[in-house]
Design a protein around this nucleic acid. Structure first.
Length: 958
RNA sequence: GCCGCGAUGGUGGAAUCGGUAGACACGAAGGACUUAAAAUCCUUUGGCCCGAAACGGCUGUGUGGGUUCAAGUCCCACUCGCGGUACCA
């Protein structure tokens, strides 16, 4: 019977749907397992074959766990808010709500065809008010919290207020924007507004004037992870620095916990390392340098306190507060000019142009250890946002200081024995100290420690840990996002009461971003808060007494994706983000699958968000994702034809790829992208090409054998002749005509083939180009397997048949546990081959085959399994192979009686010897030595050593 | 620059603990079936060499060294490629 995959797949998908096979309960006696995919942005282009790669892998694992007896939560949803969805809406001139809905419908349709085991009843969408109510709720909780370093967790802001009222800022160890100092009396005398301003310094969600990444083209600010090399990650538009009043999340308060938490989770080392770098912990010291002829001091941060004797100047960031205090009248004009120049430079220019720039401030500082006077400079190689925005410069041992010193002709004092600083600095932290007073003769490492002690003893500074991790800017001047539940009274922000959430996204006349940074919500007519009646009212009613303006910025994309995993557990709960019972059962995600591009974005934010929720008692695990696997990206494989553009070109001649290096064509051909659907195994369908676009209608070809159409006028595109296309690996994109749509693959080969082929393509974590060439092989395998089931029998299986299928069970079990799905597919093929050789159509064997195939190719597995049951006369029409227990392999079948040992002499294989499998090592050794072939090789000599690796090899060393 | 990862046939890749490298698949070549094509099936397929034959020899996992009876796998040095990050003091 023919393998009618379309019929089989349609039938089973319908059946699974009708019986709600994949819906999962929060109550079960079974152990739980939570498998999650990073939910997609429903963009307008739909899914291409790269998207399902991770989904297929996670689906295989969920199905496997389910067959192993776990209660598996495997949900799917949509990250519908944010820039991509909105950009698409703007481009197509439609309302984002409309496009989002259309796109989600398309995504769901595409996903449904691949046969995933999602429990769709748990779907979440970040743009759904029932969902974003809890995004807003979490934001309100952060606003009402501060981070207490003593207890190491978030605490209610009311506790801080109490502390201020009793002790002022005394004995306070908390995360803060800047260090404030006031007494309890001073606190009590502050006005309400002043107190609110002070509290803003501590809240975990706070508003402040911050230097931000402003992207004019997108009309919004971006977080650090959304910017790379001065360009927006999304769209690649230039980004400039601006100071704006923005909401931020105090992610930096959690830096140490985010860092330490990495040790407790099962993620790849490279991803953990990326996060460690991003958090950027660095141990060093803050030191005070007195200003010459003044009481003021400059606070600097350094990790190389040991190099204090080599400090020959100091440098301040242009934006540093110190600048105004150190500039002398004589230097003021120069400094102002420099500051103006720095300010007009874009981030991109600054990165591109690494020339040394700077200006002398006119002032001098005193080196607190040597008491020498050193000049203070201002330069933009020092960043205001890191450390204290001021450094002590040690040109001999820091390459940036070195370049600066050379440019301004400042002294360079080497501090390490043997370090040659005539050409470049010596940055390595190793060697013996010289020219360094009491540190002389010490190893650098010891000198750093000694110097830290000295600094603390002398009171000229303190040991300090700095983090590179910055707070996350939380405002977006965009329409398509969660509105912040904030209104402004006397310019101070206040949160809407929790009972009023969600604050719904309003209708606006124009949702497009504005170049000025005025958010689109400014166009909303009904966008003011009536404090008394607790409702949203028209802006015209704003009176500053009862009715106040609402926040115009929306939340960034990462807001909705930070705690979504909790919501799947309990997605219909309107009283809590997640119910106690639900989170008590599911805990956290056991296996998370997604791209590594989220390493410094989503995967940091959601860990932060989760830790905050943990602190306030919502989440019950410190880490949201216990194990994480990054699936590789699937790139496109573009095909090219080569148009001849020599002097005598007609513009209609195309040269086969294998000929383009010939002298007559070399450098005279122009590669043109050709639709990959017109190309099979790099051979162009020339007729289809001529019909593809009008400009190719008259195309003529030089074929791979050098012949042309003219040589064979009667045959046209003759069967013997092939036009070969070139290829390149590129991003999958419509403009390259290389997008492969999963629907088309399902249509042509079936979902089971697609699933198997995507796994077969290579290791899950590896990035690889999509290449349709090999898919036929996988499809053939399924068809042959199907043919085996044509005439099933109930005959007793032979030992060979059982051995084959049990070997398969063992291999596949091992592979799934190790996420090595790519090696399971060949295992299926090999087993199928063996069974075919044995002409095995026995239901007892194929039933087992189908059971372990079920996670990979569920439709065909169902069909085969049910046929087996039917042949066996077992009533199973209401059962599914998805619920059949994962079979254990039986060692008895795997054991063979004899084992072939290759016998090697000095590492060279000479012959093989068949030995009983359970023969002990010593006996094998004796047997080999007694063997006549061995005697021939030994020629009477006594071997030095005999090495027997059980079941593998015998090596005789002579 | 720094950090991380990688390099195996014409191609994608396999080799799980240091133990017969190249599984499986694609592609290619040849053959069977067929009026023909498609489909299907069979054979060969890292390179070189010897030969009538082989369960024959040599060589071979980016390069150069090393450890070991034995190295794709471990160590050292290097080359190239990919990813992350970047005046982070």
């Amino acid at each position: 019977m023919e393998y009618n995959f379309q019929d089989i797949e349609r039938r089973w998908q319908q059946r699974w749907h009708e019986t709600s096979l994949y819906s999962v309960s929060n109550r079960s006696n079974k152990p739980k397992y939570y498998v999650l995919d990073m939910f997609p942005y429903p963009s307008g282009a739909g899914l291409h074959v790269g998207h399902p790669l991770g989904y297929i892998a996670s689906d295989i694992y969920s199905r496997y766990k389910r067959q192993q007896g776990f209660n598996v939560l495997h949900p799917m949803g949509f990250d519908a808010y944010g820039l991509p969805a909105e950009q698409y809406a703007i481009q197509t001139g439609q309302h984002p709500e409309k496009t989002t809905e259309v796109n989600i419908a398309r995504y769901k349709e595409q996903l449904s065809k691949i046969g995933f085991s999602y429990d769709w009843s748990r779907e979440v969408r970040t743009c759904d008010p029932r969902f974003y109510k809890w995004t807003q709720w979490a934001f309100v909780q952060m606003f009402n919290s501060y981070y207490c370093n003593t207890s190491g967790k978030a605490q209610p802001i009311s506790r801080l207020v109490e502390h201020f009222a009793q002790h002022g800022t005394a004995d306070l160890d908390v995360a803060q924007t800047e260090e404030l100092s006031f007494t309890a009396d001073e606190w009590r005398e502050m006005s309400e507004c002043e107190q609110q301003q002070v509290l803003m310094n501590y809240r975990l969600a706070y508003i402040a004037d911050t230097k931000v990444n402003w992207c004019p083209a997108l009309g919004t600010v971006l977080a650090n992870d959304e910017v790379s090399e001065g360009l927006s990650v999304r769209g690649g538009y230039p980004v400039e620095q601006r100071v704006m009043r923005q909401w931020s999340l105090r992610v930096s308060a959690y830096a140490e916990r985010l860092l330490r938490g990495l040790d407790s989770i099962d993620w790849t080392d490279s991803l953990k390392e990326t996060q460690r770098n991003w958090i950027g912990r660095s141990e060093g010291a803050e030191m005070l340098f007195p200003l010459s002829g003044s009481d003021e001091q400059l606070r600097i941060f350094t990790t190389r306190a040991d190099t204090i004797y080599g400090v020959t100047f100091m440098v301040l960031a242009p934006e540093s507060e110190y600048v105004s205090r150190v500039v002398t009248d004589a230097q003021r004009a120069d400094v102002d000019e420099y500051l103006a120049w720095v300010r007009h430079r874009t981030e991109r220019e600054r990165i591109a142009d690494r020339r040394v720039t700077g200006v002398f401030s006119g002032s001098y500082a005193i080196n607190p250890v040597t008491e020498q006077e050193i000049p203070i400079y201002i330069s933009d190689y020092v960043l205001a946002g890191y450390g204290t925005g001021a450094i002590m410069a040690v040109p001999a041992h820091d390459s940036r200081d070195y370049a600066f010193a050379r440019h301004f002709d400042l002294p360079i004092i080497p501090l390490i024995e043997g370090a040659d600083v005539s050409e470049q600095s010596f940055d390595a932290k190793e060697g013996i100290m010289i020219n360094s007073g009491f540190l002389n003769g010490m190893e650098v490492k010891d000198a750093i420690a000694a110097m830290k002690r000295y600094i603390e003893q002398q009171g000229i500074g303190k040991v300090k840990v700095n983090y590179r991790l910055r707070d996350a800017i939380f405002s977006r001047q965009r329409y398509w996002g969660e509105p912040s539940p904030v209104y402004y009274k006397d310019g101070m922000p206040y949160m809407l009461p929790e009972r009023c959430l969600p604050l719904l996204l309003p209708e606006v006349s124009d949702f497009r971003p504005t170049p000025t940074g005025e958010p689109p919500l400014g166009n909303a007519e009904k966008w003011a808060w009536d404090e008394q009646h607790e409702k949203v009212v028209s802006k015209s009613l704003i009176d500053g007494k009862h009715v106040f303006p609402l926040e115009l910025c929306t939340m960034p994309g990462f807001a909705g994706s930070s705690a979504y995993y909790l919501r799947y557990m309990d997605n219909t709960n309107d009283d809590a983000l997640v119910g106690k019972e639900a989170v008590g059962y599911w805990h956290n995600v056991d296996l998370y699958l997604g791209g590594s591009e989220h390493a410094t974005g989503h995967l940091i934010y959601s860990r932060y968000w989760n830790k905050f929720l943990y602190d306030i008692g919502v989440a019950i695990e410190q880490e949201p994702f216990a194990k994480l696997i990054n699936q590789g990206m699937i790139q496109g494989r573009s095909s090219f034809v080569y148009r001849y553009i020599g002097d005598d070109a007609t513009g209609n001649l195309y040269i086969s790829y294998n000929l383009i290096d010939r002298p007559e064509y070399k450098d005279k051909v122009q590669p043109i992208h050709v639709d990959i659907n017109l190309v099979h195994n790099d051979v162009l369908d020339v007729d289809a090409f001529r019909h593809w676009m009008p400009e190719f209608a008259k195309a003529e070809f030089v074929y791979s054998d050098g012949s042309t159409d003219i040589d064979n006028p009667y045959l046209g595109a003759a069967t013997e002749k092939q036009y070969l296309c070139g290829s390149a690996v590129e991003k999958m994109s419509k403009t390259y005509f290389n997008v492969v749509n999963p629907d088309d693959m399902v249509e042509r080969y079936g979902a089971d083939t697609l699933r198997l082929y995507e796994m077969f393509l290579g290791p899950l974590e590896l990035s690889k180009p999509w290449d349709t060439n090999g898919i036929d092989g996988v499809h053939r395998f399924l068809r042959r397997l199907w043919n085996l089931c044509d005439e099933l029998t109930n005959d007793e299986p032979t030992i060979e048949e059982l051995r084959s299928v049990h070997r398969l069970i063992k291999k596949v079990s091992y592979d799934i546990e190790h996420f090595s799905f790519n090696t399971s597919v060949p295992a299926f093929m090999i087993c199928q081959n063996e069974l075919q050789q044995l002409r095995c159509s026995k239901s007892a064997v194929l039933e087992l085959f189908a059971t372990v195939l079920a996670p990979f190719a569920p439709h065909l597995a169902e069909e085969i399994w049910h046929r087996c049951k039917q042949v066996q006369g077992v009533e199973a029409s209401d059962k599914s192979v998805c619920d059949v227990a994962w079979p254990a392999y039986d060692e008895r079948y795997l054991n063979v009686d004899t084992v072939k040992y290759p016998v090697q002499f000095n590492g060279k294989v000479r012959f093989t010897l068949e030995v009983a499998k359970d023969m002990p090592r010593e006996e094998v050794e004796q047997m080999v030595l007694a063997d006549e072939q061995t005697a021939r090789y030994l020629g009477g000599a006594t071997p030095k050593k005999v090495i027997v690796v059980p079941g593998r090899i015998v090596n005789i060393v002579m």
